[in-house]
């Protein structure tokens, strides 16, 4: 058990889908097209009732900004054959040691959140490290500091929970029981679990 598990809180209910978090992260981590340490997934669905010339919409859409969740039971770590993936004792951050990783990509088959991203040029897999280098310098992670509506927060997950509440039980995200992710979402009005609206389409 990490001394003080760090994690994210994302306020989906105000997320613009602007993907600034994604690009700030790409810039910091030098990620080519095809690699996203933080991605913003578009979920949408619904339909219309057309009566005469009038249309009545029943439409929903929301964004899920998501990165690695530095899970309590990281399946990526369990499965990694080389031990390149470790969970830091002091803060529970899950990182991939680029000097150990051999680019087998098994972690990409293991993470329910598609967090590990293979880098063909380097022959290794990388992922969000919660910007620990910045945190250690007293600065916010790139994505957190980038968000135009201040929807992403970072901190000890217990504190975040106290401050914002939030849940991982978000419609269309995988069952958190699998890996016990350390992220919290304030769900968007349309992303509350159990809502029985039409099957949503998810796009990256």
């Amino acid at each position: 058990m990490a001394t003080q598990q760090l994690g994210f809180h994302v306020d989906m209910s105000v997320c613009l889908g602007c993907r600034t978090c994604t690009i700030a992260c790409k810039d910091k981590n030098d990620l080519e097209v095809g690699q996203l340490y933080r991605k913003v997934i578009e979920v949408e669905g619904g339909d219309y009732t057309v009566t005469g010339k009038a249309v009545i919409p029943n439409v929903f859409a929301y964004w899920i900004s998501i990165s690695c969740n530095h899970c309590a039971e990281p399946r990526c770590l369990q499965n990694c054959p080389t031990g390149a993936i470790t969970k830091r004792e002091q803060d529970g951050v899950v990182t991939i040691d680029q000097d150990v990783c051999i680019g087998c990509r098994y972690c990409t088959w293991s993470c329910p959140y598609d967090a590990p991203q293979y880098n063909p040029a380097k022959g290794t897999t990388g992922k969000c490290n919660l910007c620990v280098d910045l945190i250690e310098k007293g600065r916010e992670p790139a994505c957190v500091a980038a968000c135009p509506v201040r929807a992403i927060h970072v901190g000890p997950i217990a504190e975040l929970k106290k401050q914002f509440g939030g849940t991982m039980q978000v419609k269309s995200l995988p069952d958190p029981a699998l890996t016990k992710p350390n992220s919290l979402y304030t769900p968007h009005r349309d992303a509350v679990r159990g809502d029985a609206s039409a099957a949503p389409t998810a796009r990256r």
């Binding site: 499965n79 990694c80 080389t82 150990v100 051999i102 680019g103 022959g123 897999t125």
Partner: peptide, 22 residues
């Protein structure tokens, strides 16, 4: 050939404790 870093293949047996791939 599937590995991104074939030179490190030997490291693939470093995590026998939990990894079925290892």
């Amino acid at each position: 050939s599937h590995l991104g870093t074939p030179g490190g293949a030997y490291r693939a047996i470093f995590n026998l404790k939990t990894s079925w791939l290892s």
